[in-house]
Amino acid sequence: MPGSGLVSTGEAAKSIGVGRATLARWWAEGLVVPTLVTAGGHARWDVDQLRRDLAALRERDE
């Protein structure tokens, strides 16, 4: 079902150990992309996918 297992920006940030503002900035900079953006413009994140995306960024930068 679409949307199941997705969390808010604050919850996703907490799950990966960064502040909400940091994750929002990474999104604004195009470093990460939320799984879903609601009609109201709120991001919803799949934390496992976010972790994979961040791991790929680290590998790319090494």
Results as ranks from 00 to 15, higher is better:
M1K: 14
M1A: 15
P2D: 09
P2G: 07
V7C: 12
S8T: 15
T9F: 02
T9G: 08
G10F: 08
G10N: 13
G10P: 00
A12G: 10
A12V: 13
A13L: 08
S15Q: 15
I16F: 08
V18W: 05
G19N: 10
R20C: 01
A21H: 10
A21C: 06
A21L: 07
A21P: 00
T22I: 06
A24C: 01
A24K: 04
R25W: 07
W26F: 08
A28I: 10
A28N: 13
E29A: 10
E29G: 00
G30T: 08
G30I: 11
G30R: 12
G30C: 07
L31W: 14
V32E: 01
V33H: 15
V33A: 14
P34T: 08
T35F: 00
L36N: 13
T38G: 04
T38H: 02
T38C: 06
A39D: 13
G40T: 13
G40R: 10
G41Y: 01
G41I: 01
A43E: 07
A43R: 01
R44D: 11
W45K: 10
D46Q: 10
V47I: 08
V47Q: 00
D48C: 05
L50V: 09
L50F: 04
R52I: 03
D53T: 13
D53E: 09
A56I: 04
A56L: 07
A56E: 05
L57N: 01
R58G: 05
E59A: 06
R60G: 05
D61V: 11
D61P: 00
E62D: 05
E62Y: 01
